Simulated assay, not measured.
Amino acid sequence: MSSNDASLISPAEAASATATLIDVRSEKSRIEFGTVAGAIVVDKAAVEAEFGAADRDRDEPIVVFCGSVQGSGPVVDELKGLGYTDVSHVDGGFPALKEHGVPTVD
């Protein structure tokens, strides 16, 4: 499976979405640049452990971001493979969200 452009959303769409935000950037990047307020931090290697539980709502909207779409795209594919139906990622990643003015925390 590979991520396609249909799963990409703009920073503005991400900012206005009522969705679970997932930050899959490295700890180093989060320490250096902060993260989006309210985002859940998930290690890319732990996506299945975090989201594979049988009791999770597979229709919940999820927006994934990384430093770029190359980092978030595989996570989108993995979540879709786990049965999630409303998964997208941010065109431009965290830098684009921050530039758009999405509230961040250190």
Rank of each mutant, 00 (worst) to 15 (best):
S68E: 15
K80R: 14
G34C: 06
D57E: 07
G67K: 04
G52T: 04
A19Q: 10
F33A: 13
S26E: 05
D91K: 09
G92W: 09
I40G: 10
G93I: 06
V41Q: 14
L21R: 08
G92E: 12
I40S: 12
E32N: 11
S88R: 11
A53Q: 13
Y84F: 12
L79S: 02
V63F: 04
D55C: 08
E32D: 07
D59T: 14
G34V: 05
S88E: 03
F51M: 09
T18L: 13
V36W: 06
A54K: 08
V24T: 05
S72N: 05
D86T: 10
K28M: 10
A46P: 11
E60N: 14
S72P: 13
E78T: 06
A49Q: 15
H89W: 02
R56A: 06
I62A: 04
R30Q: 09
G73I: 01
G38E: 11
E27W: 02
I62Y: 00
G73E: 06
K28Q: 12
G38F: 09
I62W: 02
V47K: 04
G92D: 10
A45T: 13
S26L: 05
R30M: 07
L79K: 01
V90Q: 00
G73C: 01
G52P: 04
V47D: 03
P74W: 04
V24G: 03
D77Q: 05
K80N: 08
G67A: 15
V42L: 10
V90E: 00
F33S: 13
A54V: 12
E32Y: 13
G67V: 03
A19D: 06
T18K: 14
Y84N: 05
R58P: 01
V36F: 03
D23W: 04
G73T: 04
A46N: 14
S88F: 00
T20Y: 01
E27C: 03
H89K: 11
G52F: 12
I22T: 07
D91Q: 10
D59C: 05
G93M: 09
C66F: 08
D55K: 10
D77I: 04
E78I: 00
R58L: 14
A37R: 08
I40L: 15
A45S: 15
S88Q: 09
C66L: 11
S88V: 07
F51R: 13
H89P: 03
L79D: 05
T20D: 12
E50K: 13
V63D: 03
I31G: 14
D57W: 01
A49E: 13
H89M: 03
L82R: 02
A46T: 13
D43I: 10
V87H: 05
R30H: 02
S68W: 03
G92Q: 03
D43N: 15
K80F: 01
V69Y: 07
A37I: 11
P61C: 07
V76P: 01
G71Q: 13
V63A: 00
F51Y: 15
L79E: 07
R25S: 09
C66G: 15
S68A: 06
V36G: 08
G81P: 08
A37H: 06
T18F: 14
G38Q: 01
S88W: 07
V36Y: 04
G83K: 08
D57Q: 04
L82K: 00
A39L: 07
K28N: 11
G93R: 06
K44I: 09
D57R: 00
G52R: 00
I62L: 08
A49I: 09
R25Q: 00
V41D: 14
E50Y: 13
